[in-house]
Every structure is written in C-alpha cells, then in structure tokens.
Design a binder for these strands. Structure first.
Lengths: 373, 373
DNA sequence: AACGGGTGGTAAATGCGTTTACCAAGTTGA
DNA sequence: TCAACTTGGTAAACGCATTTACCACCCGTT
C-alpha cells in the first residue's frame, strides 16, 4: 500500500551525491561539470530505482509542465472533427507532452471554467478548437499563456490553423473539369445565408470563393444552384430529387459536403441514374461515409489530423502571428465519370490539380480501395 | 508579462491572517474553528484577488490532483467509440476533475509510457479503454492506483464497464418477433472464428449467446446464417446480394452491426426490395450511419456515453470488484416491417421488450426523427 | 608566499499549499 | 485561587525538484 514514489533524494542517496548534483546531472546539458564517475553513478541509481521525476513538483519550480490544454466546443469527441484531437494527441506525444482535453459546448461559463482548470494545472499552452471553423471568443487569459486557435480564428490571438478552403474549392472544380465536365454542373447546398453566417462563415465563404473563382477562370458556369440551410443527407436527397425531376441535362453535382452527397446518391439511385457512370458527384469533407458509398465518393477532404498536429507544433514553437492554412487532400474514389479530356479547359484544370497536389505532397489518398468495388 | 499568479500567501496577507488559517478556512469542513470574521475576510480576499489554488502544489502534499488519466488503444478519437470519451469527460467535469487523454495504438511500449506519463502527473486514477471490448493487458502499476477497465476486461482489475450484450442480443430478436416476424429470419455476419477471437470475443460471444437463447426461447430459428470475418459495408452487400439471389423466402435480416446493414441496404435497393416494406433489417451499434439511411435503421445501440460516465463514476468511487453491464438502448427507426402481431410468440417478445426497456429506463431513443422521412 | 583560476561539488532557498504541533488569552469549575 | 479547558490562531515542516550562491581543494604563477 502506498509504496512511496522514488524521489530524486533517493537517487542522490544511492548514488552517493547531493540532490543538487543528481538534478544537475539529470537535466544539465551534457557538459562535464561533474566527474564521469558521478554521472555514471547517478544514471545507474536512476535505472536501478526506476526513478521518474514528479512533473508537478518540477512545474512548481520551472513553470513547465509538459502538459497542454485542449479546449474545444464539442469537436474533440465528435465524428465531425475527431481528427483534430487525434492529430494533436499524436504531435503532443512526439514532443513528450500530454494533453488535458476539455469540452465546453460553447457555453461561456464552461469555457471560463475550462480555462481556469487548465491554468490551475500549469499547462504550457492552450489549443482552442471548434467544430465549425469560426470566430471564437476566448476568456481572459494571462498575457504569457501561449494560445493556438484550431479550426477557429480570434482577433486577439495571432496563431491559428485553418483548412485551405480556397484552394480546396478550386480543386473540386478542377477535378470535374479535368475529367472533361464542362457542362451540366450543378452546385448543391451553397446558401448565401450560410455563407454570411458567422458560425460557418470562416470556412464556407472561402470554399465558395475558391469554387467560383476557379469556375470563372476556366470559363465554366453552373447550370443551377440548389441551396439549403442545412446540409444533411435528407437535404441532399430532396434537392437532388427535385433537380433531377425538373431537368435532364445534369451531368455533375458539386455538393458542399459529403452528407449532402450521400442524400444525392439516394435520389440518383431511386431514379436509376448510376453515380460514376451516368452522373458525377464531387463533394467536401471526406467523411467516413464517403468511403462506404457505392461507388466510393470522390471528395476534397478536411485535413483534420494534419491540422491538429500543426496546432500543437505551433503551440510549442515560438512562432507568433501566423495563420497557417493546411492543404485539403483530393481524395479520388469512383464517383466521377471520365469524359473527353482533350478540351483546353480540361487540360488546364488537370495541370492545376497536378501542380497543387505536388505542392501539398498529397498523393491522392486511399484511392477508393474500400467502397469502390 | 509573467504576471505572477495569486497565491494563498497573497490571500492570507490581504485577509490579515496566516497562510495556515487561510488554508484551513478554505478547505476545512465548515466547522467554526475560526471566527466568523476571519472566514469573511478570507473569502473576501479570495474573491477580490481571484485566487485559485495551484493544483500541482496541492497534489504534492495531498496526492490528489483532481485529474484522471484516460488511456485508450485508439478508441478515444475514433468515430467507433468516441462516445466513451465524451461520457467520461462529462462525468469528470461533474466531479470537478479533468482528464488527461492518451492513445497507445495497443503498442505495449506506448502503453507503458502512457501509464508512466499519467502517474508522473499524480493522477487520481486511470481508465483503460479499448475500442473492441476485450481482455487487455495492463502495464505494472503501484497497488494504490485506482483503475477501471472501460469496454475491456482484465483479470487483475476487478472494476470494469461493459455493454450488456447478452440482453442487447435478446432485444434484437424481440424487436423482430414483436413485429410479427416468426419466419424467414437470416443472421448476417456472425462468424464462429470471430466469436472465438480474443479481440472481439468479450462482446460478440455474449451478443450471439443472447441472440440464440432468445430465438430458442421464443421457438424461432434462422433460415440461414451468412457469415463473414469482416463486418464492413462491402461484406454486408456481398452476403445479402448472394442471399437474395439464392432464395426468395427472406423476410428479415439480423445484422451483426450497422455497417453490415448498410451494405445490406444497398443490395436490397439494387434488387428493388424496399427495406421497411418488403424486408426488415435490425442490427447493432447505432452508428451515425444508422440515422442517415433511408429508411432509418432500427438498431440496438452501444451505450458508449453511458459507459464512459459509469467508468469515471466508478473510478472516483470506492467500489471494488464490479463488472458493470450497461444496458443497450433499443433505437427504433423505420427498417422493421410490422406484420401480424397477434401470435403468441409476438406477444411474448413484446412483453420482454417492454419489461427490459422499463428496467433500463431507456425510452426508444430518437425514434427516427432524422432519416426516416 | 600569495593570488588567480579551474574542478567538483554542496547547502539552502524557492515554488505553493497542506498539515502538524504548539501557543496565548480567556473561561470554567471546584 | 489554581488547574483544566476552549477559543482562535500561528510557526514550521513537508512534499519534490530546481536553482542560486558558495565552498574546499588543487594547480600553476609571479
């Protein structure tokens, strides 16, 4: 019962030196302030006793706890963006840190409490993450606390990590154009209200902007835009169903997210239109869903894990005032029909796509191994 | 810069008492060892200065850090069982604790490191969670460390939290029987190998046992069993496709999980068989997926959040040697056809279902509001 | 002989809150 | 009046690792 932990004093005693010496030897840079023999004896004692420093005690003195706080609205544990936390966890581990994870549900009271709780534990820094990339208010903090906004922005803190939505939007268009789609393209979901909505805006506005710019630059246009406030499967279904019942010149669907696309699949199926043969669908997010669909859904992924890693990397660095945009991977599965790719526009789009992929180093991810069968 | 934190000494000075007094007043039970006035002055000072105790310093003395370690193989951040961590987080917050979350990928080296890391931070206890409920080996730990196994079992530690799979299995059968299904029931996925597999066994074996017992007790039998090692959508698709092409007396599918069911939906759709009208499907897990399907999938849910909550509750209690089984909610959506319910077997099944739901207090969850349209 | 400069260390203070041991002054009770 | 409590409170130790300030000793100079 309660076998006392091995302390530095124990190590010192066994090694026949003072605690001071033991501490200096264990932490000091490897200069030879002490005899080689003292070094040996101390390390020997550490190994023998299985000594591990008490991080709390150390933090008391050094103000470094090797612990970081990860405070999110609701992102941490939701399928929506669990990758954020996974990436952060991974990078924290690499850096020898450990993560306190808290959720606040966007409730200001809980947010304040969460900040207090992690500060009370002397964290080395705090990552604030949100599910929907957005402007987030952060409770008052001591000047000296390092902060990174993850999938969120905040005027007060310069360091934030966001997906490169503008480029992602362009990629989606290029994907279609490069496959030869120059006509019959419909945009599904985009809604001006949503775009202006403070909550989703940071992300959606840029995505749409990239989308439209690329269309324009390639000389393309949408033949229709079906908009909806919510972006759930049922909306995708309804929008697509009515679209297909109304007109017969639809060749490609650009869906604002995978859940909309999922609904679109259902509508197509019902009408005997087979995705990947009679019609192309491209969307955003790379939800788990996307791989399960038949045929596999080609989508522009949210790089959650990479973002999480980047956030922790930034937090532990000294960098200040950065807005880091993380590239969105192009995940090609089997929902895009290949048409005639010889047109000028198609070639141009393919070039841009190639160039972009080379730049982000993102080989087409997991090209539909699952679900494309 | 580096605005020094307010310490207890500051509070004491402002209140005109010794740190001892301040500490005793702030922590002591509300007995009147000290004058009412001293109480008032101390609390006043705390409020004025915004004092918050340094948890690390306190832990040094008291060995209680109000922090718990949550170590999982890979569960924490995966859609598969993120509910576990969410529930744990919730309950920890309620209890004024905070959670260190670590992942190990089942790598023994990382597991040992993780245990070391949380112990170094003086956690009050450790929750070990796994994605697949199974026997898990835990690195050596000091006797005094409180441990709870979550969705896992370990011979050495008496306290574990698991889903009540046996009862869940029975519920699935009852659901079908109560809707009048007494013939044409097929089991999809179940595989003897899987059942014996140490990894999935703890959960699957009990589920299957419940399933079969209930069938037997109601005098029912499967007309076929399609087994598969993997339980992914593509397997569900292949299994169901071949089944439907082979025989025409299939009226109900009992799928071992939602992903299999998802594949089954696709196979049915392809053949013009509409789920919820021509055929019934019931499965397990209550994946996100289940709500997206059309019609909504009726499924026996894994009570991840409740399990997470229960784990933390047990961890912070003094209880020892418990295996807590958490009831699996019956999530009724629209994938089950209602047939003639007047048979004896149907009535018996309905009774059991009712009784069980009353017992777990689980009203049919979210009865298909989404996806059932 | 006295001084400057390494070499190889250590005692003690520090960070912060809790806890033990003790104390002074006032009350009671006999 | 004196011993025995009570009341209201404090000094100091403690938990553990880091860090500052200092020391003893030896060597080589001048």
């Amino acid at each position: 019962m309660a076998v006392r932990r091995v302390t530095l004093a124990d190590v010192a005693k066994l090694a026949g030196v003072s605690p001071t010496t033991a501490s200096l030897i264990l932490n000091g840079k490897p200069d030879t302030r002490f005899s080689a023999d003292a070094h040996r004896r101390v390390h020997q004692a550490v190994a023998e006793l299985g000594y591990r420093p008490n991080i709390g005690a150390r933090a008391l003195r050094t103000d470094r706890s090797l612990t970081i706080g990860f405070i999110s609205d609701v992102v941490a544990t939701t399928r929506f963006a669990s990758g954020l936390i996974r990436g952060a966890l991974e990078e924290a581990e690499n850096a020898g840190h450990v993560m306190l994870v808290l959720e606040t549900g966007s409730d200001p009271t809980r947010e304040a409490e969460a900040v207090g709780a992690v500060l009370d534990r002397q964290v080395d820094g705090i990552v604030f993450a949100t599910m929907r990339a957005r402007e987030m208010v952060v409770p008052a903090l001591p000047e000296s606390t390092r902060v990174v906004m993850l999938n969120a922005t905040n005027a007060g803190f310069g360091v934030s990590v966001l997906p490169d939505e503008e480029t992602g939007g362009r990629s989606a268009v290029d994907l279609l154009a490069a496959a030869g789609h120059v006509e019959g393209i419909v945009l599904i979901g985009q809604n001006d209200e949503v775009e202006r909505d403070l909550f989703r805006s940071a992300t959606v506005a840029r995505r749409v902007h990239g989308l439209r710019s690329e269309m324009a630059e390639l000389g393309l246009g949408f033949i229709a835009e079906e908009s909806s406030w919510d972006w759930e499967p049922e909306n995708g279904y309804a929008l697509t169903a009515s679209l297909l019942d109304r007109r017969d010149d639809v060749r490609a669907l650009l869906c604002m997210n995978d859940r909309l696309a999922f609904g679109a699949y259902q509508a197509c199926q019902e009408r005997g239109i087979v995705v990947g043969r009679d019609i192309s669908i491209v969307s955003f997010d790379n939800d788990e869903l996307a791989a399960y669909l038949r045929p596999g859904l080609t989508t522009i992924g949210l790089p959650h894990e990479a973002m999480g890693r980047e956030a922790v990397r930034l937090l532990l660095s000294q960098e200040t005032a950065v807005e880091r945009l993380v590239g969105m991977p192009v995940v090609e599965r089997a929902s895009v029909v290949t048409l005639d790719r010889t047109s000028d526009r198609a070639r141009r789009a393919q070039e841009r796509l190639d160039e972009r992929q080379a730049r982000t180093g993102s080989a087409p991810v997991d090209a539909g191994a699952r679900g494309s069968a």
